[in-house]
Design a protein around this nucleic acid. Structure first.
Length: 607
DNA sequence: CCGTCGCTAGTTCATGCAAT
DNA sequence: ATTGCATGAACTAGCGACGG
């Protein structure tokens, strides 16, 4: 109906009182006036329970009708451009390079804002630890620290028995820790600023400004599920035990009563899932000892290796070190001889194994997204190996700017360029050591050839500029006065020859040539041959202004096009092709990294 | 001949979103 | 609040080319 113009639709977003935005699609008859729509949307905002910010986007504020998604809360940014720019094939090469180019031609601020709509970028900017196992480790270690440092927290049930209530993580952890454990979904300048100061990083989440607290959805479902995900993993490896209250006379454990918390617990036995916060355990015990199984060897039944104490922070750190090794270092795990008997891991074995065996779970380095790397690539010359690091001053200012635009740490950006350059050097060295006519070598060759061609082009352009100057001074010397059309025509022929002759040694010869031409022009003028006049006027028409020669602008550097400077008034002599033209005739520069033969099927699949 | 590397497709996982 | 769905990302295994 929309296509046939019977109805119109648009999307907008309303901020719910609880913080998150809700996208709504509004359909209406084309006869509805804009004012009515505006009123309606405003009403819609108010209709939702006690909105803090009624409507983010009003109808009159330029809304894109139809399918395009109007991204609220941000200047009209090319969201769909980013989406296209992000599309990449299996190798990370963009499938829509034109979208990438278009995006990167915008202002730095726009590029930054646009990239910050990508989840991985914004969450890492705020310090999110993307590896799940490392996140669980952080949760574990931070909690142990809290038992020592803030034993009086309302949400710590018992320091002796190491029991904590889940609400601790929505109240008494610092902002920086919260952001490390729970990914942020949208960019918030206030949050970014806060995280820059030590004071801000230490601020407990319960003390955050209200709007920030709400934007981070501290304490709401999403946060709880994210945290419970981590607890599920910790339970799976035996670091924590979920608890439930009990009336039993012989509870699993008992502690001194504190605040309104219960003092007797049993092990939580119901099945639960991190997604449903109602049925999930709220009380958790941090064990004093945990087993290590050889996870990298077997997914279904990893062999028990040993128990390790995790009472103190130091012990826990040692535990995580060993755990990491047996999870990702298969060789190490295989070299271990296990005791004949041992407990099997408890909890949901498959889920635990899945998370913990994955390498990315343990990756601590910053994760550059493809779009960030595309941006970095713009500052890395594949043919010459040039990066900002090779700039005279080390490129400090450029690097900082780049880091800001892509919202990545400066060290990461610097390291990326260092590695890119090192790879380039390595490639060149290998190619020189043993040049071989293989595919790999070809790519290198092409890269070097492109570099050489580039140098040639520049050299030619410079030479040409010099030649141009020589010509100017020569003519100036022999004929300082403005020239008439016919004279210009005669001189023009010689100029073409001069420009193409290349050598600078035989100035005498050219002087003679020019003088003779000038003389010819003079006698021709004097005899007023009708024919030659006719010829001259037709030929010279393009530059009928006398004196154009002496006023010609100097050729600009870098462009090797022959038409700069005085316009060659005569087409009689086809000038030899310039280097640039010759190169252009060979077609576009070959890409070092091919657009290669992908199977038809694969291609279709991606489209 | 065997090991390594790069390419590719299929599968699984994480996560936000929308419907209930 | 809960649950199912859709989607992009990541992992893995298989294959072939290449090089020692």
């Amino acid at each position: 109906m929309e296509e046939r113009g019977k109805i119109k639709t648009f999307q907008t977003a309303i901020r719910l009182p609880t913080g998150p935005q809700k996208h709504v699609r509004i359909m209406y008859l084309p006869t509805i006036a804009k004012e009515q729509l505006d009123t309606y949307v405003a009403e819609l905002g108010r209709g939702l329970p006690t909105p803090q910010q009624p409507v983010v986007k009003r109808v009159e504020e330029e809304i894109k009708y139809g399918r395009e998604l109007a991204e609220p809360n941000r200047r009209t940014l090319p969201l769909d451009l980013l989406q296209r720019a992000r599309l990449a094939d299996y190798q990370g090469n963009p499938t829509h390079p034109e979208a990438v180019d278009e995006l990167f031609q915008r202002e730095d601020q726009d590029i930054r804002d646009t990239l910050l709509t990508e989840r991985s970028i914004v969450s890492q900017l705020h310090g999110f630890i993307s590896g799940k196992a490392l996140r669980a480790r952080e949760l574990h270690l931070y909690t142990l620290r809290s038992f020592e440092e803030q034993p009086n927290s309302f949400h710590i049930v018992s320091v002796e028995e190491r029991i904590i209530h889940l609400s601790f993580y929505s109240n008494d952890i610092p902002l920086a820790v919260f952001c490390a454990l729970v990914s942020t979904l949208t960019h918030d300048e206030q949050l970014t600023q806060l995280l820059l100061s030590e004071e801000g990083r230490r601020m407990l989440v319960k003390n955050l400004p209200l709007d920030l607290y709400s934007n981070l959805s501290v304490g709401r479902t999403r946060t709880r599920s994210r945290l419970l995900d981590l607890f599920e993993l910790l339970q799976g490896i035996g670091v924590v035990t979920p608890l439930q209250l009990t009336e039993s006379a012989t509870p699993f454990l008992r502690c001194t009563p504190k605040n309104e918390h219960p003092s007797a617990f049993d092990v939580f036995t119901e099945t639960w899932s991190p997604q449903s916060s109602i049925n999930s355990p709220a009380y958790w015990r941090f064990n004093t000892e945990a087993p290590i199984h050889l996870w990298s060897i077997s997914e279904d039944s990893p062999a028990f290796w040993k128990n390790m104490p995790i009472r103190t922070l130091e012990e826990a750190m040692a535990y995580w070190e060993d755990l990491c090794k047996v999870c990702i270092d298969r060789e190490f795990a295989a070299s271990i001889t296990c005791p004949p008997t041992g407990m099997r891991p408890q909890g949901s074995l498959e889920a635990t194994a899945r998370s913990i065996r994955r390498k990315s779970s343990w990756k601590s380095s910053y994760d550059l997204s493809p779009i960030q790397q595309h941006y970095l690539n713009r500052f890395f010359n594949q043919s010459t190996g040039q990066t900002p690091l090779q700039d005279q001053d080390g490129g400090a200012a450029t690097l900082e700017r780049i880091a800001w635009v892509i919202s990545a740490p400066l060290t990461v950006v610097t390291e990326w360029f260092r590695e890119s350059h090192a790879r380039y050097v390595h490639r060149i060295e290998r190619a020189e050591r043993k040049p071989r006519p293989k595919k790999a070598a070809k790519a290198e060759k092409a890269a070097r050839r492109a570099a050489e061609e580039q140098q040639l082009v520049e050299k030619a352009a410079n030479a040409r500029a010099q030649r141009e100057q020589d010509w100017q001074s020569l003519v100036q010397r022999l004929h300082p006065d403005p020239m008439d059309d016919m004279t210009a025509a005669r001189i023009g022929r010689i100029r073409n020859l001069f420009m193409d002759s290349g050598t600078r040694a035989d100035n005498k010869k050219w002087e003679r040539e020019v003088s003779r031409a000038l003389q010819d022009a003079k006698t021709a003028e004097e005899t007023r041959l009708v024919t030659s006049q006719k010829k001259a006027s037709t030929v010279v028409r393009p530059s009928s202004r006398p004196g154009v020669l002496s006023k010609a602008a100097p050729p600009s550097k870098g462009t090797a096009l022959p038409a700069r400077g005085p316009p060659p008034p005569v087409a009689a002599i086809a000038p030899g092709k310039s280097v640039a033209e010759l190169i252009a005739d060979q077609g576009p520069v070959r890409h070092q990294k091919k657009a290669k033969k992908r199977s038809k099927k694969a291609k279709e699949g991606k489209l």
